[in-house]
Each structure stands twice: as C-alpha cells, then as structure tokens.
Amino acid sequence: MLPDPTPADLERATAGDVDAFRTIVERYQRMVYSVAYNVLGNQTDAEDAAQEAFLRCYRKLPQYRAEATFSTWLFRLALTASVDYRRREGRRPEPVEVPETAGDDPALGDGISSSTLVAALHDLPDDYRVPTVLRDIYGLPYQEIADLTARPLGTVKVMVHRGRASLRLRLQAEREA
C-alpha cells in the first residue's frame, strides 16, 4: 500500500505546484492505469482513461476531504473515469497485449497464467467483462456496479454470472489444450 500524500503535498498541488502534482502522478500511475486497463481491456483506451482520471483528480483536489484515504478517493475516480470512458467511446478492437507488471507475475492458480486470464477477459463481451471485473477483481457490491454502469441490479448479477461461466469454460479449455 502506497503512503498517502501529506496534507502539505496536497495543498501545494491544489495551489498549482506542478512538482507536487507530479509526485502524486508518479506515485499512483500504476494503480490508476491498472484499473483503467482491467475495465477497458486494451492499452490505448486505458491510457486515455487513466489520463482522464488524473485530470479529474487535479480539478477536484480542492474537493478532496480526508474522510477517505487519498488512494481510495483516487481509485474511485479511476473507476468512474474508466466506466464513463467506455460508455462514451465504446471499445476499440485491439489485439491482446499484456502490459508489464510492476513486480513478479502474480500467482493466479494452477495452470492459469496472466496472459491466459487477460486473453480470456479480452474475449468477453463488454457487457459481461466490465461488471465481472468490477465484482471479482475489485470486489465492488452489486448495487454499486449497477449505479456505475447504469444497469438494473438483476441484469448486473446475470452478467457477472455469465461472465464467470464464460471465463471458467475458456480457462478450462486452455488448460485441456
């Protein structure tokens, strides 16, 4: 977990100090980009949405209250910016490319590699992928997913269940191949 910026850092960034804002961007860029990539499923869109999230952060800095940690606040901005981006722009067809991870590749389980999981997520229709990612990667409650994606609660649940079923079949087929 990254340490939150100090109140003094935030105050300087709010006053337009570029170096203070640079510190925030450099500290959180991986987290914000990861959220955008997982929601949007390709690197070009993820970069645009992550930039948008940081711009929203910059503009809303005066509204930040320390009721939530800064990273939680920024994480929500990144999620909202990514979901809004998908709603606005749709999705560009792009070949699957797994971005570099910061540390070692995470251990995903027996016979499941990062590239297999990313490819399986990439092949899910957007309507299934976004709610499934929000639920199973980020653990959002169903109601919050329904609010974010502007879909009925029941529909969101069905989409997540179908998304999981598709992923399960895909990963099983990869393992058996």
């Binding site: 990313v118 980020y138 653990g139 999981r164 990963l171």
Partner: peptide, 24 residues
C-alpha cells in the same frame, strides 16, 4: 478458482506506457 485468479490479477500493478506521467 476463477474468482481467486481474478482477485490475484487485481493485485498486480501494471506499468503504463513510457512517458505517461509527462503526458498527464
């Protein structure tokens, strides 16, 4: 197993393209 794999993938921090911070 799928949920555990997804949660583990969520822990991974992905590197943005070079020059990302400068563009922001």
């Amino acid at each position: 197993e799928v949920r555990a794999a997804m949660a583990a993938w969520g822990e991974a921090e992905l590197a943005p393209p070079p020059g990302f911070a400068e563009r922001v």
